[in-house]
């Protein structure tokens, strides 16, 4: 069974980046190369909310929390 950071990374690569010709690693900066668009960020937030069972307030959607899979996992208790 995959751990949660691996599950999140698989979702990003399999769902959000599918067809874009790129694959993220756990330390890839997700937002600096335009990989995640305005629809994908909503899907990403919804996926993290389902994993944690907690709503993410808009004010927590900042680069410090979302820069990479590692940081998302650390910030939202998935690590």
């Amino acid at each position: 069974m995959r751990d949660k950071p691996a599950e999140l990374l698989a979702y990003i690569n399999g769902e959000l980046l599918s067809g874009k010709g790129v694959q993220a690693a756990s330390d890839t900066r997700l937002f600096e190369d335009g990989w995640i668009d305005s629809l994908s960020i909503l899907k990403l937030i919804a996926f993290i909310e389902r994993m944690t069972g907690q709503e993410i307030p808009d004010e927590q959607v900042v680069m410090e929390n979302f820069q990479s899979v590692n940081q998302i996992a650390h910030r939202f208790g998935l690590a």
């Binding site: 937002f31 995640i36 668009d37 305005s38 629809l39 994908s40 960020i41 909503l42 937030i45 808009d58 959607v61 900042v62 680069m63 979302f66």
Partner: peptide, 14 residues
């Protein structure tokens, strides 16, 4: 919808 996503991206990427 997508406009909320644009707002969050705008905020995230400053």
């Amino acid at each position: 919808g997508e406009a909320r996503g644009r707002k969050l991206l705008q905020q995230l990427k400053q």
